[in-house]
Write a protein that binds this DNA or RNA. Structure first.
Lengths: 195, 195
DNA sequence: TGATGTCTACCTATTAGTAGGTAGACAAAA
DNA sequence: TTTTGTCTACCTACTAATAGGTAGACATCA
């Protein structure tokens, strides 16, 4: 009973890895079909249109992200540890090339030509993530763990941009380690003063 | 004698704006054809294959960027002003939605499925930009204008990631002002201590 | 029985790219 | 001076492959 993933979940898994590699226009039903050994028509049975497939995909991604981030927010760990865990997640992903890029970050680049139903979901993820980071930063500030030079919501945007930019650079230079090099000093900066 | 742009340059102009909007797979010869009122076959006359078209496009972009950055390096302005000018360029672009995104940053996201001839050129641009930022930061450090917490080449990577991430966020939130909000504090940080 | 999932077999539109030809500019040869 | 050839830029008309999507038959399972 190793992987009991349903067909529709397998479809979403493959679609996600294809989007991460090449964006919305970078994959087709034929690609998915070939990858999991099922006919195109069967994929249409589960997801009538491409826009719907990607919408469901982003919904699933958002749900997983929400759960993941929420679980970090437990009383167990300090805001500093929460932030570090978030970054460790991506560091591991990028090193192991599992999903070496955030689906929503990828789609955000194509915002202007995405079906509206997809675009709005991507926007929503960005809002969620910014919100989570803001609340963690604010908590850390109130506990005197972080010394912020800007308002928490601004520092959250800065951090989010660093993370996404670091993903891009790691990919452009084909150097997973670059992610850590870029992102770690930003945390160091929040924690204290000097590196 | 307003705009005497040659046909091939018009093709590149349109292609560039289409790539910025939707990436490599986000445009077709038919799109360009419709945009400038010329037949598809005529575009193939100028650029036999899509990979070649985009390669020439990236070459042109790199040349322009090189010239632009080089002109900032004149003795006239301090490293701090050079950095500021670079950011102002993008701030204006994003505000006016001209090319509201760096072509190479867009393509870097699709790295994994780009024709090799294109991918290598995109990598080269990232290298150039990182190099330029490194040398400006190093100069500023030596003149005691910047107080860096990390090695110049690392700070350059951090800054570059911030810029690209800020472009992405500005697009995701559909808020050009976000670019400045994200990027300005990074400069402030380099310049002195407190915001 | 009927719902679910998969299939074969198709459809139309679009993709990148090709074949072959036309009209005009320019230059050298007659 | 005409004529011949070459070149550039564009055209119409096509190709093979792929895109997303549909209709309906068949099987399995509750």
């Amino acid at each position: 009973m190793k992987s009991m993933a349903s067909t529709s979940e397998k479809i979403l898994d493959v679609a996600q890895s294809l989007i991460v590699a090449g964006g919305y226009n970078g994959f087709s039903y034929a690609d998915i079909s070939a990858a999991i050994g099922i006919r195109k028509a069967s994929i249409h049975h589960h997801f009538p249109t491409k826009a719907e497939l990607v919408s469901v995909l982003v919904d699933r991604y958002r749900r997983q992200a929400e759960v993941g981030l929420e679980s970090l927010r437990g009383e167990l760990s300090s805001p500093a540890e929460q932030l570090q865990s978030y970054l460790n997640y991506w560091r591991t992903c990028i090193r192991d090339a599992s999903p070496s890029f955030c689906v929503c970050a990828m789609l955000a680049g194509e915002m202007q030509m995405l079906p509206e139903e997809v675009a709005s979901r991507v926007r929503a993820h960005f809002q969620n993530l910014a919100g989570w980071l803001t609340s963690v930063l604010r908590a850390g500030m109130e506990q005197d763990l972080f010394r912020l030079n800007n308002r928490p919501e601004e520092e959250a945007q800065m951090l989010m941009a660093s993370v996404h930019g670091a993903m891009l650079s790691a990919r452009a230079f084909n150097d997973p380690g670059l992610f850590t090099i870029i992102v770690t000093p930003q945390i160091t900066r929040l924690l204290g003063r000097d590196s």
